[in-house]
Design a protein around this nucleic acid. Structure first.
Length: 922
DNA sequence: GATCCGACAGGCG
DNA sequence: CGCCTGTCGGATC
C-alpha cells in the first residue's frame, strides 16, 4: 500500500459511502488487515460496551454523534482513553473530528474534505508523522506518480542503449522542470499541462512531436522565434542548458498521456528539491525501488556535516561583524568566493541544502546592512536595538550601497555523480532551489534577479569520482574557499565489484592492505590529497567501519601522511532516514583538513567536546593506531579462531536430532561432540556436531545417517563460494578442525559492549568451538584472568572492530597487541587464585546463564567482587599505584603500546643493520 | 524496536 | 592456514 493508493482509495470511499460501514471502510483504506476489521465489525474485537461506540486496541476509538456537540464528545472520549487507541474519531457524517492521541494533533473538517487530509491517519499504515515531516508526502506522491508514468513510457519505448537511457533521463528531467515551473510562477499557472490537454490528441499519438517542438521553443530566445502559434509562443525562454540539446522524446499512448496530465495536475509547489531527487532516483532504478530512497541523507544529517564544516564559522563571523559594515561587506564577498563540492552528489541533496543555507545567511547579512543604514539615517524603528553601534560605524554603513542581488551563483557548486539520471536531477534541483531562494529573496527585499532565463548551472559531472581528477572538476582559483562534502557510497571489501576494487587500487596506488578497505576510503584519500594542495576542508558521512578495527590502521596513516587532521567528528550513531527499508548501519561524520592548532570538536550525540586532537578512533588523544600483529607479545599463548563449519548446518545437531540419531545408532556416540558458539556458551544452550577424524572417516561413512548428512554438506558446498567449493571433498568435516589436548578457553567473538567484562571460560577438551568464538587451546589459567579483566575490556572497546555497535573481538588487533608486561610466577599464582574465585562465584549461580550473570544491571555482588579482586591483581602487574579512572587506564595502555612499538622498531632496525653488516663482510 | 549474537565468503599475509 | 569484516541477517525479549 503506497501513499498514492491510499489517497485515491480514500477519494473513492468519500464519493459514495454508507454510514453503516464507513468506519470499517476507512480502516481498510489504510491497509489494516481485512480479517481483523471483520472481527471488529462482528464485535469480537470491539472493546467498548456502549452502543454506537467502537474501540479497537491501539488503533481506534469511534463514535457517531447526532445530538450533542461533537467537539464536547470527542474531548470526553480523548480524555478517557483506556486501550491506547491511537485515533479518536467522532462524526455525524457531515462534520468529521479526529484526534491523534499520540501527537495531540486535531482534525476538524467536513467529511467530504477527508481525502485532502489523508495523511492524518497514515500511522495506521505504519507511517509515522515524524517520518513524513522529513519526507514530504508530496514528494512521495510525486515519486510514485512518476514511477507509474515511467513504467508506462518504457512499455512503448524500450531502452536499448546508454544513449536511449540518457535521452529518457533528460526527457524526464525536462518534464519535471515543466511541472514545477507551471506551479511556481515560472510559467503561467497550469500552462504546460493545459497546453497538452488542449492541443494534443487523446490517444497520445502526436504528443511526442508536440513536446519536441515545445522543448525547442523553450530553448529559443523570443527574438529568434518565428511563426509560432500563440500557445507555444506564450512559453518563456528557459535556456541554462536544460533544453539545449535536442533528444527524441518518447512515444506516448492514451494511458501515458493521461498519466502526464494527472501528474501535472498535482501541486508541484510543495515539492522539496532537497530530497525529491533521491526519491525519483529510486523510482527510475527498478532495483532500488524496493528501498525507495533508503540511502538518501536526511536533512538533519546533512546539517551535521554542513554546520561544523563551514556554516557555523560563517555565522560566527556574521555575529562578530554585526557592528562593522565593512566586515559585513567582506563577508558577502567571501560568500561569493566559496565553492562547495560534493564528489558523490547523487541527486544533489547536500549541494542544495548548502546552497539554501548560504543564501539564507546572505539574506540575513543584507538585511542587517539595510538596518544599519536605516539606523544611520535615523528613521529606523529598530534603531534602539542598534544603539550600541558607534556613530562612526553607522555613518560608514550609510556610505555603502547594499545592492539587492545575490552574490551566490550556482556555478560555485560542483558535483560528481556516476548515475546519469541522478546527475541530471542534481542539475535540475539546483535550479529549482535557486528559484525558491529567489522567491524568498523577493519576499524579503521586493527585488530579485529573474529566474528565467536560467543562468549558469551547477557544475555536475557525470562520472566515476574515483577515476576523475577532482582538481579538474572543481579547480581552485585565487581567493577561492573550497569545501568538500557528501555521503559517498559505503561498500565493504567483500562486497565490492572488480571494477570498484580497481578504483581503490588506482586511488591508493596499491598500498598494502587497501583491499580490505571500505569503498568510501577512496573519497577520504582523494579529499585529503585535494585538501593538502588547495588548503580546503572536507567532511563526509561514512560507515563507522573505517574508524575501527583493522581499517582504522590501514586508512588513517595515509590520510595523516598528507598533512590532514580530523577537525571535527560525530561519533557513531544509527543511520536514520525515513525510507521504508533503511540501511541498518552505524555511521560517523568526519571532517578533515590541513593540520592546524585550532581546537577540534567531537560531537557525542548532543554534546560537543573541544579537544586538542581527535584520534582516528574519533576519541580525544594521540593519533596512535593499533595495527594488526600476527603473534602475541610477552610469551602469551596464541589465541585462534574457532572452527568454521561452512556446512549449511548439516553437521550440526540439536538436542532432538542427536537423540533420535543415537536411538537408532548408539554407536554414533563417538562421532558426536558438544558444540559451542558464543550464544550456546552465553545462554547455556546445547548444540552438537558430527565430528569425524580422518582416520575414522570410513567407519563413520558406513552409517547411512552420516552419509546422508555428508552428502548434504557436499551439495551445499558445491553451490558455495571458492572456499566452500575447495572443501567439497572434505565434506565429512568442518573447514578448520582444531581441538584441545586438555582444555579450551572460549572467548565469544561478537558481544555487546554493555557488559563491564568480557565473558570467557574453560571448556573440557571434548568440546568443539565454532567461529563465533575465539579459542586458546590448553592455556595457563592466569590468561583467563587477563582476558576477563576490566582493563582488557577497556582496551578492547577502544580498538576492536564492530558489528554495528557491538564488539568484534579480534586476536590480531585486540589480543596480540594488548600491552601487558612480562610477569613473575608469583603474580601468575595470584591471578590464578582470582580466576578460581570467579569460577566459584559463577558456580553459586549455576541456575543462571552467563548472559544473565554478566548483565551489568544484575550482576551478583559476589561475582562482581571476585572480578574486582581479579582487576586489582591484573593491574598490579602494570604498576603498584592503582588506576583512578578508565580514561587513565586507556591512556596508560596507549602510552605503553607506543613504547613497545618504538622499542620493536629499534630492535628491527638493529637486526636489519646486523644483516647488512654481515652481507658486507662476505 | 531494542538487544544481542550467527554464519559464510574471500582476499591477504 | 588463519583471520577480519559485512549500506549484513535474524532471533528473541
Amino acid at each position: 500500500m503506497n501513499i498514492a493508493q491510499i489517497e485515491s482509495n480514500l477519494q473513492n470511499l468519500i464519493k459514495s459511502f454508507s454510514k453503516e460501514t464507513f468506519i470499517y471502510d476507512l480502516l481498510l483504506v489504510y491497509g489494516l488487515p481485512k480479517a481483523s476489521i471483520t472481527r471488529l465489525q462482528k464485535g469480537n474485537l470491539n472493546l467498548s460496551k456502549s452502543e454506537g461506540e467502537i474501540s479497537w486496541k491501539k488503533k481506534l476509538r469511534f463514535q457517531e454523534e447526532y445530538s450533542a456537540d461533537l467537539h464536547l464528545t470527542i474531548s470526553e472520549l480523548a480524555q478517557s482513553i483506556k486501550h491506547e487507541e491511537r485515533f479518536v474519531i467522532v462524526t455525524d457524517y457531515v462534520l468529521f473530528l479526529a484526534i491523534d492521541t499520540k501527537t495531540g494533533e486535531k482534525l476538524d473538517i467536513e467529511i467530504q474534505d477527508l481525502p485532502k487530509h489523508f495523511d492524518f491517519f497514515l500511522p495506521w499504515a505504519g507511517m509515522e508523522k515524524a517520518q513524513h515531516r522529513n519526507e514530504n508526502p508530496a514528494d512521495v506522491k510525486a515519486a510514485e506518480r512518476m514511477a507509474k508514468l515511467f513504467d508506462e513510457i518504457k512499455k512503448d519505448n524500450p531502452v536499448k542503449s546508454e544513449e536511449d537511457s540518457h535521452a529518457l533521463n533528460v526527457f524526464l528531467t525536462r518534464l519535471l522542470f515543466c511541472f514545477f515551473a507551471e506551479d511556481t510562477h515560472i510559467f503561467q499557472d497550469g500552462q504546460f499541462t493545459n497546453a497538452i490537454s488542449s492541443h494534443t490528441a487523446v490517444d497520445g499519438n502526436d504528443l511526442r512531436p508536440y513536446l519536441e517542438s515545445l522543448f525547442e521553443v523553450l530553448n529559443t530566445a523570443s527574438k529568434d522565434r518565428k511563426d509560432l502559434p500563440a500557445y507555444l509562443n506564450a512559453f518563456p525562454y528557459v535556456n541554462g542548458g536544460l533544453f539545449k540539446d535536442s533528444f527524441q522524446a518518447p512515444e506516448f499512448n492514451r494511458k501515458s498521456r493521461q498519466l502526464i496530465i494527472d501528474a501535472g495536475e498535482m501541486n508541484w509547489k510543495d515539492i522539496n528539491p532537497d530530497i525529491f531527487g533521491s526519491m525519483f532516483q529510486g523510482v527510475i532504478d527498478p532495483e532500488k525501488r524496493g528501498s525507495l530512497g533508503a540511502h538518501y541523507t536526511s536533512v538533519p544529517n546533512i546539517m551535521k556535516v554542513i554546520e561544523p564544516l563551514f556554516l557555523d564559522e560563517f555565522k560566527d563571523e556574521f555575529e562578530k561583524a554585526k557592528h562593522n559594515p565593512k566586515k559585513l561587506n567582506e563577508l558577502l564577498y567571501r560568500l561569493s568566493k566559496i565553492k562547495i563540492f560534493d564528489p558523490a552528489c547523487g541527486s544533489g541533496n547536500f549541494l542544495i541544502i548548502a546552497y539554501k543555507e548560504l543564501r539564507k545567511l546572505e539574506i540575513a547579512i543584507i538585511h542587517h546592512l539595510q538596518d544599519l543604514q536605516k539606523a544611520a539615517a535615523g528613521f529606523n524603528s529598530k534603531s534602539e536595538q542598534l544603539s550600541f553601534i558607534p556613530k562612526a560605524q553607522l555613518s560608514l554603513a550609510a556610505s555603502f550601497q547594499v545592492e539587492l542581488f545575490s552574490r551566490i551563483q550556482l556555478s560555485q557548486f560542483f558535483g560528481i555523480e556516476i548515475d546519469d539520471f541522478a546527475h541530471e536531477i542534481a542539475q535540475l534541483s539546483l535550479w529549482l532551489a535557486e528559484h525558491q531562494m529567489n522567491v524568498e529573496f523577493h519576499r524579503e527585499f521586493g527585488k530579485t534577479s529573474p529566474t528565467l532565463p536560467l543562468k549558469e548551472a551547477g557544475k555536475i559531472v557525470c562520472g566515476n569520482a574515483c577515476r576523475l581528477d577532482w582538481e579538474e572538476v572543481c579547480p581552485k582559483k585565487e581567493g577561492d574557499e573550497i569545501y568538500i562534502l557528501g555521503n559517498p557510497p559505503y561498500l565493504g571489501a567483500r562486497n565490492q565489484s572488480l571494477l570498484q576494487k580497481k578504483d581503490l587500487e588506482d586511488v591508493f596506488s596499491s598500498a598494502s592492505g587497501t583491499n580490505s578497505l571500505d569503498y568510501i576510503s577512496a573519497w577520504f584519500i582523494k579529499a585529503a590529497i585535494y585538501n593538502d594542495k588547495n588548503n580546503s576542508h572536507a567532511a563526509f558521512v561514512s560507515t563507522n567501519s573505517i574508524i575501527q578495527g583493522e581499517q582504522a590502521g590501514i586508512l588513517w596513516p595515509q590520510i595523516l601522511a598528507v598533512n590532514n587532521q580530523i577537525f571535527f567528528a560525530h561519533t557513531s550513531f544509527l543511520w536514520n532516514n525515513s525510507a521504508k527499508n533503511q540501511a541498518a548501519v552505524y555511521v560517523v561524520i568526519i571532517g578533515i583538513g590541513k593540520a592546524s592548532v585550532k581546537k577540534k570538536k567531537i560531537f557525542l550525540g548532543d554534546n560537543v567536546k573541544m579537544v586538542e586532537n581527535i584520534s582516528p578512533y574519533l576519541t580525544e588523544g594521540s593519533n596512535t593506531i593499533v595495527g594488526k600483529r600476527s603473534k602475541p607479545r610477552n610469551g602469551l599463548p596464541s589465541l585462534v579462531f574457532g572452527n568454521q563449519g561452512i556446512d549449511g548446518g548439516h553437521l550440526i545437531l540439536s538436542n532432538e536430532e542427536r537423540k533420535s540419531l543415537l536411538n537408532k545408532n548408539p554407536e554414533l556416540e563417538k562421532f558426536i561432540r558438544p558444540l559451542f558458539g558464543a550464544e550456546d556458551y552465553m545462554k547455556n544452550e546445547n548444540r552438537w556436531c558430527i565430528w569425524i577424524n580422518e582416520r575414522d572417516k570410513d567407519e563413520a561413512l558406513a552409517f547411512p545417517e552420516i552419509q546422508k548428512r555428508v552428502k548434504s554438506v557436499e551439495n551445499y558446498r558445491k553451490g558455495g563460494g571458492q572456499v566452500a567449493r575447495s572443501l567439497v571433498n572434505l565434506s565429512y568435516r568442518f573447514r578448520y578442525i582444531h581441538e584441545a589436548k586438555r582444555s579450551t578457553l572460549i572467548l565469544p567473538r561478537t558481544t555487546t559492549e554493555r557488559r563491564d567484562y568480557l565473558v570467557v571460560g574453560f571448556l573440557d577438551k571434548k568440546n568443539i568451538v565454532t567461529d563465533a568464538a575465539q579459542v586458546i587451546y590448553d592455556p595457563e589459567p592466569f590468561v583467563f584472568g587477563l582476558l576477563s579483566s576490566k582493563i582488557h575490556m577497556i582496551w578492547v572497546k577502544a580498538t576492536a572492530g564492530r558489528l554495528k555497535m557491538d564488539i568484534r573481538y579480534s586476536n590480531s588487533i585486540c589480543y596480540n597487541n594488548f600491552p601487558f608486561p612480562p610477569i613473575s610466577d608469583q603474580r601468575k599464582q595470584e591471578i590464578t587464585q582470582c580466576v578460581f574465585r570467579i569460577l566459584e562465584e559463577r558456580e553459586r549461580h549455576s541456575e543462571k546463564t552467563l548472559a544473565q550473570l554478566y548483565d551489568p544491571d544484575k550482576m551478583p555482588e559476589g561475582l562482581r567482587e571476585a572480578h574486582r579482586q581479579n582487576d586489582l591483581a591484573i593491574e598490579r602487574c602494570y604498576r603498584s599505584r592503582p588506576f583512578e579512572s578508565d580514561e587513565e587506564r586507556l591512556e596508560y595502555l596507549f602510552k605503553l603500546y607506543e613504547k613497545m612499538i618504538a622499542e620493536e622498531k629499534v630492535k628491527d632496525s638493529l637486526f636489519e643493520k646486523e644483516k647488512k653488516g654481515r652481507k658486507v663482510k662476505k
